[in-house]
Simulated assay, not measured.
Amino acid sequence: MPLERDASGRTFIHHPSGQRTHYILNDFTDPWKSRETILIQHGFGRHAAFWYHWIPILSRKYRVIRRDLRGHGYSSYPQNSDKYDYTLNTILGEMIDTLDQLGVERVHFLGESTGGILGEIFAAKHPESLLSLTVCSTPIYLPPVALRLFAFGRKDWPTACRELGSRGWAEELSRIPGTIPVTDPQYLPWYLEQIAVSDGEGLAQYAKFLSTLDARPWLGRIKAPTLILSPTQSAAVKVEDMKVLAEKIEGSKLVLIEGPGHEIYVTQAKKCQQAFLGFLENLDRDITKGEN
């Protein structure tokens, strides 16, 4: 399957599933040096562009791949005529296919919110593909109370995405206190505009997939070095749950990120970046010690 670049310069992977995945690759490392790769996977409703502020600090030392999930951003989603097996194995298979087509064997996986659920299962099922796992503001599954919240009075979460559209759904989310506590008055309009890049139907299909996604059976099988970045004031993730997660993943490191809101990768970006880079640097030192 060939790589593709459209007229706007966006880059895509074509999968055997018939779908295509939009990705952004940034690499400002010294070209004569070997470098490792970071794969960033965003949370629900967002897409690759939301991580723009992480790229300058990460891409100087690492090759960084940001990919849009199925039905998010500029990635496609199944149409009525498509024969698409919308399952965990398909979604994970497309992640593997992305890496294969880009010639990447192993990555440091960085998953935010529900993107981290995928990362946890990915780490358990495909340990050969991971150098490390980092999850940020990540629940291990979405309980019924969360699914009801995301429905915003509709029949269910997918229905809310279809009826409200992507922007309308995000507007409802933004009204929940502390969800998007960014003080810059120009941030929310930009946020909503970016959410609107995705189609409501694409988000609805992925919401249905997420509604049954559960990392709990897989946590004990994760062997990759793991960092857990936990918000202290999230409406969706409790510190107590993150402590339980740290106990389930042997040898994992839990870092509490003080500050309001769920999307700490934005509101507390510097703290998260420092913790993440420190974690990766410690891995490098451990590897170097082992070689000596």
Score class of each variant (00 low, 15 high):
residue 213 L to I: 03
residue 223 K to L: 11
residue 287 I to E: 12
residue 286 D to K: 15
residue 142 L to C: 05
residue 208 K to M: 02
residue 227 L to F: 06
residue 159 T to W: 01
residue 181 P to F: 06
residue 55 I to L: 15
residue 32 W to F: 13
residue 157 W to S: 06
residue 54 W to N: 11
residue 139 P to T: 10
residue 16 P to G: 04
residue 240 E to C: 01
residue 127 P to R: 02
residue 12 F to H: 05
residue 100 D to H: 10
residue 282 N to D: 12
residue 70 R to L: 15
residue 189 P to H: 05
residue 60 R to N: 10
residue 161 C to V: 06
residue 281 E to S: 14
residue 254 L to F: 10
residue 178 G to T: 03
residue 162 R to E: 09
residue 285 R to N: 15
residue 201 E to N: 13
residue 90 T to A: 14
residue 87 T to H: 05
residue 56 P to L: 08
residue 261 G to N: 01
residue 19 Q to E: 12
residue 39 L to M: 12
residue 177 P to V: 01
residue 121 I to F: 02
residue 221 R to C: 07
residue 36 E to N: 10
residue 219 L to D: 06
residue 153 G to Y: 06
residue 155 K to S: 11
residue 109 F to V: 02
residue 98 T to H: 03
residue 117 I to G: 01
residue 85 D to E: 13
residue 97 D to V: 06
residue 198 S to T: 11
residue 195 I to C: 13
residue 131 L to K: 13
residue 169 W to A: 04
residue 95 M to H: 09
residue 117 I to Y: 00
residue 271 K to W: 01
residue 1 M to Y: 05
residue 133 L to T: 04
residue 51 W to P: 05
residue 285 R to Y: 11
residue 64 V to W: 04
residue 75 S to F: 03
residue 264 I to H: 07
residue 231 P to S: 10
residue 107 V to H: 03
residue 150 F to Y: 12
residue 105 E to I: 03
residue 46 R to L: 14
residue 217 P to Q: 08
residue 174 S to E: 04
residue 8 S to H: 11
residue 129 S to P: 00
residue 194 Q to E: 15
residue 225 P to N: 08
residue 25 L to F: 02
residue 235 A to G: 15
residue 199 D to E: 13
residue 171 E to Y: 06
residue 183 T to N: 14
residue 236 A to L: 15
residue 78 P to G: 04
residue 27 D to E: 13
residue 50 F to S: 12
residue 90 T to C: 13
residue 12 F to Q: 06
residue 115 G to F: 05
residue 86 Y to P: 05
residue 105 E to D: 14
residue 62 Y to D: 01
residue 242 M to S: 14
residue 5 R to W: 00
residue 10 R to F: 11
residue 68 D to N: 10
residue 210 L to V: 05
residue 88 L to G: 04
residue 192 L to D: 03
residue 73 G to C: 09
residue 203 L to A: 02
residue 134 T to H: 02
residue 275 A to C: 03
residue 100 D to A: 12
residue 119 G to E: 07
residue 44 F to A: 12
residue 178 G to I: 02
residue 14 H to E: 02
residue 20 R to A: 10
residue 32 W to H: 14
residue 17 S to T: 15
residue 230 S to Y: 09
residue 152 F to G: 00
residue 200 G to C: 09
residue 23 Y to M: 08
residue 59 S to Y: 02
residue 115 G to R: 04
residue 97 D to P: 00
residue 225 P to C: 08
residue 269 A to C: 11
residue 180 I to G: 01
residue 278 G to H: 08
residue 158 P to Q: 00
residue 158 P to L: 03
residue 210 L to G: 07
residue 153 G to S: 09
residue 115 G to K: 10
residue 63 R to Y: 00
residue 88 L to I: 10
residue 214 D to S: 09
residue 175 R to P: 00
residue 75 S to W: 04
residue 250 E to T: 08
residue 105 E to C: 04
residue 189 P to M: 04
residue 130 L to C: 02
residue 94 E to H: 08
residue 235 A to S: 11
residue 20 R to Q: 12
residue 126 H to A: 09
residue 8 S to V: 09
residue 23 Y to I: 11
residue 89 N to K: 13
residue 282 N to I: 02
residue 88 L to W: 03
residue 119 G to R: 03
residue 284 D to N: 14
residue 213 L to D: 03
residue 166 S to M: 07
residue 238 K to W: 02
residue 183 T to L: 14
residue 115 G to A: 01
residue 154 R to N: 12
residue 289 K to M: 13
residue 12 F to R: 05
residue 292 N to L: 13
residue 227 L to T: 05
residue 231 P to N: 09
